[in-house]
Structures are given as C-alpha cells and as structure tokens.
Amino acid sequence: MGNPEIDIVISKTGKVTVEVKGAKGPRCLEYAELIKEIVGHEESRQLTEEYYAPDGDVRIDTKVRAKSG
C-alpha cells in the first residue's frame, strides 16, 4: 500500500473534517492526531472498516477440491 492520503475539508465557519485513507489500524489515528495537533480540539471521531483491518497484506488462498466417488 502507498503513502496514506488525508482529505481535509475546512468549512466556511472554520470547522475541519479530516478523513484518513490508506492507513489501517492505529496508524491511521497517528495521521488524524497530527492534523488535530495543527488545527485544534476534537469534536467527534468515527472509525471505519479499514481501521479494523490488519495492518499489512493478507493473502487468502482458497482451494476447492472436487470430491470423487
């Protein structure tokens, strides 16, 4: 996976919404914390499916064996 991307939306009242993409698990929160440090106080946080995904590549091999008989 490449470097993570951060999508930052600054509303016309100055409120900031940050979405971290491409970083799994606690790593994504490290990036969110970085933006929080720059901007101000945290109002709310929502963790998505990717947060709970294992940090690293996972390969799943599926074998289907035909049953003879």
Binding site: G14, K15, V16, T17, V18, E19, V20, K21, G22, A23, K24, C28, L29, A32, I35, K36, V39, G40, H41, E42, E43, S44, R45, Q46, L47, T48, E49, E50, Y51, A53
Partner: peptide
C-alpha cells in the same frame, strides 16, 4: 476510509 474526525479550530 479508515477514520473521520471533526475538529474545532483554535486561532492562536
């Protein structure tokens, strides 16, 4: 996506 946070800005 992995995390979405909403922040209140500090102007200091």
């Amino acid at each position: 996506m992995s995390a979405i946070i909403v922040l209140t800005p500090l102007v200091v």
